[in-house]
């Protein structure tokens, strides 16, 4: 009861305080700390990144191939990538400078579970999705698998901060949304929210860090909704 009263009271105060916060107020670490964290993570696991990029290409070709078993395997690989991100990046590393990440790891594991459950859809859902949506999805997958590792070069960051599929959330999310758009025609409403919310969070974090690559996760959201809207017409 005491705790409930405190929660209610603080909730009301939080609402009144909300308008006074700016984006930068939510940032609890410096750009140097964040990007050094990614660099050290990359160093720790090198050369696993090469294996993961190869894995992303396998997913891309599996989705493009349209074969039912290939699509099921692609979803399984994506699920494994989400688990790896949650465990190695969010839980073991990012949470050391952002306590909120210990809570975000759970939705990542839930997304992995949803992707595994979606394998059953490959039995029933007819392929392909709309042509525009399908090509948009494949493009998003290529963006996550092949473009993302080179994003630091465009953003003026050290190459050591490269983000690769399964290692880091952003390229994993891009590849996942791309795969879902390209191969699934229905029940996306359950599979899309977590990736889209992450992209929003990541984009805002990078904006607060004043990183020139902040546009990338936000572009993934836009591309996803454009592809979805195109498919409805």
């Amino acid at each position: 009861m005491k705790a409930q009263n405190a929660d209610r009271r603080d909730g009301q105060r939080l609402m009144s305080d909300w308008a006074t916060y700016r984006l930068a107020d939510f940032l609890m670490f410096s750009p140097r700390v964040y990007f050094r964290l990614i660099e050290r993570y990359n160093q720790d696991l090198w050369p696993l990144q090469l294996v993961f990029v190869a894995g992303a290409l396998v997913v891309l070709f599996a989705i493009a191939a349209r074969a039912r078993r290939a699509r099921a395997a692609a979803l399984a690989i994506l699920a494994a990538a989400w688990v790896f991100c949650a465990w190695q990046f969010l839980w073991l590393r990012y949470a050391t400078i952002n306590w909120a990440m210990s809570y975000v790891a759970a939705p990542f594991l839930l997304q992995a579970l949803l992707l595994l459950l979606a394998i059953r859809l490959t039995d029933r859902v007819p392929m392909p999705a709309g042509r525009l949506r399908r090509s948009g999805g494949l493009g998003l997958m290529a963006f996550g698998a092949l473009f993302y590792p080179f994003l630091p070069l465009l953003s003026g960051r050290a190459p050591g901060t490269a983000e690769t599929f399964a290692m880091m959330p952003d390229p994993t999310v891009a590849a996942t949304l791309g795969a879902l758009l390209a191969q699934t025609r229905q029940k996306l409403w359950l599979l899309v929210p977590i990736p889209v919310l992450w992209c929003g969070f990541s984009g805002l974090t990078l904006l607060a860090l004043k990183d020139a690559g902040a546009w990338a996760p936000l572009a993934v959201i836009v591309a996803t909704f454009v592809a979805l809207a195109a498919a409805r017409r």
Partner: peptide, 8 residues
Amino acid sequence: ITFNVGDD
């Protein structure tokens, strides 16, 4: 912010 450096 300044001392939030993780285990670096």
